[in-house]
Simulated scan of single mutants.
Amino acid sequence: MHGLLQGAWAVLLCGPVLVASVAATVFVVRRRALVSTGSGATGSAPEGGDQLFWDLFLGACVALPALLIPALVSPWAGLVLAGAAAASGVAAYRGSPRFLAWRNARREERQRLSAHQAAGVRHDELMRRWRRYELDPACSIDYPALTDVRLPETSALIKAMRTADQLRTATHKGYPDAVGSLAASLAAAERAAGIPAGLPAEQAG
């Protein structure tokens, strides 16, 4: 009875440590393998081998004591923990690709939202610049080409505006590129109208 209690306590105390260390080690090794495979890296084999050794060594420094100590206290506890360690390793190995894909998707989504917000700020600045030519009487008189859609540069600018507005409403991933095209189209229309490059709209009139 006393040995059974000792084994139970050993499992409770060492089990979480063993399971976590095995799962973490397998995950780290699996992640490095997936990253190196995805990037196609071939020139860093010695460094990769050294890193693999240290990953396994550090994992073993935690996992082996967590397994051997309970096994010395109670053989059945060692068997239970060995099975738990094997299960956690298999689970980490199989689940690593899905977890890494989910994490990469989250990171890409955050980057996309950040790029979309930055594009929105630039879009607003471009539209304020354009409205100056449209609404300011002095600018309209001095540079009528900016509102003449018969000109190819102005026509392209209007189309770029429409595209950027549509993609902004839909939170489309192509929105930043559309804003970039809008900026280029506005600059081209300004050049065609004879506005010096880099001249602010408030000074154009």
Score class of each variant (00 low, 15 high):
residue 107 R to Q: 14
residue 174 G to A: 13
residue 131 R to T: 07
residue 159 K to T: 14
residue 124 D to R: 09
residue 196 P to T: 09
residue 34 L to T: 02
residue 183 A to T: 00
residue 31 R to F: 11
residue 154 T to V: 02
residue 19 V to P: 04
residue 160 A to L: 01
residue 45 A to G: 00
residue 8 A to W: 06
residue 38 G to Y: 02
residue 105 A to V: 08
residue 84 A to C: 15
residue 121 V to H: 10
residue 98 R to L: 13
residue 194 G to R: 01
residue 53 F to L: 15
residue 33 A to D: 14
residue 181 S to D: 15
residue 27 F to P: 02
residue 37 T to H: 14
residue 3 G to V: 12
residue 122 R to M: 11
residue 39 S to N: 10
residue 185 S to Q: 07
residue 187 A to R: 14
residue 16 P to D: 09
residue 92 A to R: 09
residue 15 G to A: 10
residue 60 A to R: 04
residue 170 A to P: 00
residue 68 L to R: 09
residue 1 M to E: 13
residue 130 W to A: 12
residue 50 D to S: 12
residue 4 L to D: 14
residue 127 M to Y: 11
residue 24 A to I: 03
residue 139 C to W: 04
residue 51 Q to E: 15
residue 119 A to P: 10
residue 10 A to V: 11
residue 150 R to F: 05
residue 119 A to V: 03
residue 7 G to H: 02
residue 56 L to W: 01
residue 90 V to T: 06
residue 162 R to D: 15
residue 128 R to A: 14
residue 86 A to H: 10
residue 22 V to E: 04
residue 30 R to L: 02
residue 79 L to P: 00
residue 47 E to K: 01
residue 135 L to D: 13
residue 92 A to W: 04
residue 101 A to Y: 01
residue 137 P to S: 01
residue 141 I to G: 08
residue 138 A to N: 08
residue 13 L to K: 08
residue 54 W to L: 12
residue 205 G to N: 11
residue 150 R to G: 13
residue 191 R to F: 05
residue 109 E to V: 03
residue 67 L to Y: 10
residue 26 V to A: 01
residue 97 P to A: 04
residue 125 E to A: 15
residue 103 R to L: 12
residue 170 A to D: 12
residue 148 D to M: 01
residue 202 E to W: 09
residue 204 A to T: 04
residue 142 D to Q: 05
residue 146 L to D: 05
residue 79 L to H: 07
residue 170 A to L: 12
residue 45 A to K: 07
residue 101 A to G: 00
residue 188 A to Y: 10
residue 27 F to E: 07
residue 124 D to H: 06
residue 167 L to H: 01
residue 101 A to M: 01
residue 148 D to P: 09
residue 84 A to M: 14
residue 137 P to K: 00
residue 105 A to N: 13
residue 3 G to Y: 02
residue 175 Y to H: 00
residue 166 Q to L: 14
residue 21 S to P: 08
residue 46 P to D: 09
residue 152 P to T: 11
residue 15 G to K: 08
residue 56 L to M: 06
residue 205 G to W: 13
residue 60 A to K: 04
residue 82 A to W: 10
residue 148 D to V: 07
residue 131 R to H: 10
residue 184 A to H: 11
residue 30 R to D: 04
residue 26 V to Y: 02
residue 151 L to I: 12
residue 61 C to V: 10
residue 4 L to E: 15
residue 134 E to K: 12
residue 20 A to C: 11
residue 117 Q to K: 13
residue 173 K to F: 06
